[in-house]
Design a protein around this nucleic acid. Structure first.
Lengths: 332, 332
DNA sequence: TCGAAAGATGTAACCGATTACACGCAAGAG
DNA sequence: CTCTTGCGTGTAATCGGTTACATCTTTCGA
């Protein structure tokens, strides 16, 4: 395999000139550049990036940590990150943590050993995850929560969830069920807070029996909805903390002989593609996945460049999407 | 940042001993290992993997190329690959090609520049993609087709699609629509072949007007189904080349006032999670995503080790999954 | 008791780039 | 004509590991 010395020999210039012709073309005369280019073509030279990265003490890759790649919302965000990273000469290392702090620690080691220049984490900081530790490397939280320390990008989950619950209230619903996500996940906490705020502003009581625990995946929505609709006085609307659980909930309600939205309204969160095509299409909250990637790369590259953005927070706008899974409360 | 020389100094041994203590512990005495361990703890040393990789001329990362990460079936396969890779000390570089050969070429350059040790590509070789070229590096195709040159892992798409169409025929359907994927994609070609074989074995004619072109994404299933159900003599069953298009098709048929499965049966392919929770749940073909990752890593590591597996093909079993989106043909 | 073999350790070359520094040369200022 | 400035180029040190080879010690059989 040819190296820079061979190219230099063939081009009749020094290795420094070859290196500069590739990395700092403006510092090299046109004649030299031409000679270098021809020599490169002749031996089909490709610079060894392992050597370059080693010398420059940078890996030019970013570790993207995600709790579950098969969550379609995360997939959208990752795609955006990946596109932006490639544009700026970075590679994306994928780390699926499966919500395991052991796997997460393993991945963080990648940065300590220089295999990644920084971490973009698509998850709110959970309470039990290295809460108070300070990180000495670029660490950015995407889809974070208000309690996230350090730089983060997020939507206002409290306000967004309050918004969608208020919408249900405006449809006349007074017994509104809630299907939560994983306990300990700050998104869960924020959205729960939004739920409570909406109830309280409307003068409705917070009834714990209307709250069922899920895990942000479809089947947990099924289980939770089954529980809720078997209550003695079941809710007439159910707000779910994400779209996947809402899809599961709709399925479970139908299986129990209930009509969505006429017997029970259901709402989601995230606006994944399937939400638009299920039956009925889901009323939900959309998060700007593409913008998240763009801003994430921007912040990450600034951090890698040495800029300190200790508490920089980007709070992006969310959008309410009304579809057919919600309807005014039936008068019984 | 501490390096191996500093650790050696503090431990009172040579750099070679430190290096061996980490990489070949069996070659070092227990006393030395203990001294090294203590020195490492003392200065919080982490080996610089960029240096190690550079020296060993390996990046210990694999490039996984996927046409679209937000396709839930690919997400499952990637997750499996990622788990297996981590187990064996490899990282996964994610490349979303978006079916663009330019992006694909850019990514292949990552291997030429040593930033990846091999490529696992989750796509059948399209006709227009570097068809005849020989690759000098480990290149493995997953979810490939019969026409893929070089090592690959796949299910028998022809037989699988023939199977599902035969099932529709066994339900009494004689006018069976087909929603295809992207033209030029060998999966599309293979599944079309299976469709034709099933018809021909049953003595049914191949009617081109029953074939509508899609692109393997939801909305294209909507469009195609709209076209099919507006035919003068519409099909009583529609086989879709993947689950996403089937989800879209079901939605479109319902919007046209048709009942699935009583007016029209619909089948998918891949067995994604949403297929089980849509209304009605999809009859489909399951591919063994987890096994694919296991076998892929196995083959890839053998290739990296220098083994030649020019034409090694792993053909994995598929499974027919009968659900409620299919029903016997209504007698009219 | 001696020699060979095995085991532990150290020295230093090496991987392939980047880049600080030195130098030569040409153009422009005084 | 000389001095300065700036551009283009080359030489060689450097990054932090790995490992071939040399050296020294210990063990064990003859």
């Amino acid at each position: 395999m040819s190296n820079i010395r061979e190219v230099a020999r063939i081009a009749g210039v020094s290795v420094a000139t070859v290196s500069r012709a590739l990395s700092h073309p403006e510092k090299v005369s046109d004649t030299s550049k031409k000679k270098v280019r021809e020599a490169i073509d002749q031996v089909n030279y490709r610079p060894n990036m392992l050597a370059r990265n080693f010398r420059s003490a940078r890996s030019f890759s970013l570790l993207v940590l995600v709790p579950d790649i098969s969550n379609p919302f995360f997939a959208l965000v990752i795609r955006s990150i990946e596109i932006q990273a490639q544009k700026r000469g970075y590679s994306v290392l994928l780390g699926d943590t499966q919500d395991s702090s052991i796997r997460e620690q393993d991945y963080i080691r990648l940065v300590e050993t220089r295999l990644a220049d920084g971490i973009i984490q698509l998850r709110p900081m959970s309470d039990n995850f290295h809460e108070s530790s300070e990180f000495s490397f670029p660490y950015l939280h995407l889809c974070a929560s208000a309690s996230t320390p350090g730089p983060c990008i997020r939507v206002d989950n409290v306000a967004a969830f309050e918004h969608i619950v208020e919408y249900l209230i405006s449809l006349g619903h007074t017994r509104i069920g809630l299907i939560t996500g994983l306990e300990g996940n700050p998104h869960t906490r924020d959205r729960l807070k939004g739920y409570k705020q909406a109830l309280s502003k409307a003068g409705l009581p917070y009834d714990e029996s209307l709250v069922a625990g899920g895990e942000y995946v479809i089947w947990s929505g099924v289980n939770a909805a089954n529980k809720l609709c078997k209550l003695p006085d079941p809710p007439t609307a159910i707000a779910c903390m994400n779209d996947e659980m809402a899809v599961g909930a709709v399925q479970a309600l139908k299986a129990n002989g209930l009509d969505v939205p006429n017997d029970v309204s259901v709402t989601g969160f995230d606006d994944i593609a399937y939400g638009r095509y299920c039956d009925p299409p889901l009323t939900t909250i959309a998060q700007p996945a593409d913008d998240m990637g763009v801003i994430a790369l921007d912040m990450m590259l600034r951090m890698i460049a040495g800029e300190k953005l200790d508490k920089e927070e980007h709070i992006l706008p969310y959008a309410f999407i009304g579809r057919q899974s919600t309807a005014p409360r039936k008068q019984s």
